[in-house]
Write a protein that binds this DNA or RNA. Sequence first.
DNA 1: TTGTTTTCTTGATAAATGTCAATGAAAAAA
DNA 2: TTTTTTCATTGACATTTATCAAGAAAACAA
Lengths: 194, 194
Amino acid sequence: MDIIENYKNYLNKKLCMPLEDADLFLSGFDLVNYKKGDYLLKQGDKNNIVKIILSGSARGFVIIDGNEFTTNFYFENDHAYDYVNYLNKHSSGMYIKALENITNLEMSFEATDFLSQEIIGYYKMSFYLFKENFIKVEKERKNHILKSPKERYLDLVKNHQNIISKVPQYQLASFIGISPEHLSRLRREIAHPK
Amino acid sequence: MDIIENYKNYLNKKLCMPLEDADLFLSGFDLVNYKKGDYLLKQGDKNNIVKIILSGSARGFVIIDGNEFTTNFYFENDHAYDYVNYLNKHSSGMYIKALENITNLEMSFEATDFLSQEIIGYYKMSFYLFKENFIKVEKERKNHILKSPKERYLDLVKNHQNIISKVPQYQLASFIGISPEHLSRLRREIAHPK
DNA sequence: TTGTTTTCTTGATAAATGTCAATGAAAAAA
DNA sequence: TTTTTTCATTGACATTTATCAAGAAAACAA
């Protein structure tokens, strides 16, 4: 089945966008491919392009004192750019790198700006999209307050098998907020309790 | 100056809402007062009322195994309800309690639903409002990945003096994700380095 | 004010987590 | 395939943080 049709269906079903609007919306996008290891975005980049992943996955991270800290993972239907700085119209504060080959929908900010005037339901759609994003981010924020690293790991195993299966453990550890060595020991502990 | 005028100004200036829309928007709200210690929301409550703080402050927390975990603080112009579960139309998963006397704008979900059909710019406004919320939450989430408890505390001191000055330390500690004893020691360390 | 409760601090100790170094396993490249 | 590089595990040890218990300080109520 067509990859774009698939996304159109997602817009319509999940984000309640009327099909005519979805067509108009999608008409502004280009298909762009990345190979595993390519950068979708680098720190300091202009960050004025909306990038929606149709297939593949990516990892977002920042570099502080030469060390990478993994802050995000992106999968199908996710928006893979520096969301916060995009909203603020700032340049990117992070890197995004393809974990595997990727096919994206991409559109410049100017074009989305134009669309927002053409499509009646644009803000409604942005809102719903946002909603998805917000719920995800807020859950994770609370997880950091409420749960131990071990519990956060088990959460990922339970609810985000896509992350677990596609991501090297040291990146997982960083995302959870612990050292790779410690994650290794937690895993052993989980596998052989007591 | 009038407290509602003040908020109208905020809607107009910060959230780019046209004044006519702001008037219509505000017409749906009631003013509600709480005293220090009152609950704005309890776990299991219906959670179908939008509550916007005009003056005062509140704390959000969950109770797990009899222990309170502070997850949110709310101040002027903040939306003080269980945002995530509100969006999902679920009942509240958290408590919100007044830290001091509060004056709120409040409106039922049914009314906001109605407004969303009446006001052309409603979703645009929701989007902008959301944006503020999202940026805040995402920054905090990343802070948990990138920064140590000590740094998180110093961040609060630097950027959220309102939280520091109005909130007991043990609640702060919970929000940061550490024990009250440890926060006490970090503070001593900061005051008397070395 | 005085007493009462809540919050903050401190000490001792235990548990969790980080760091560094070495080894082995797995994946990627040639 | 073989070689090379990256990643995961393990051990020893250091640091951070939690827990429990006690007392001091601060906030609150009578």
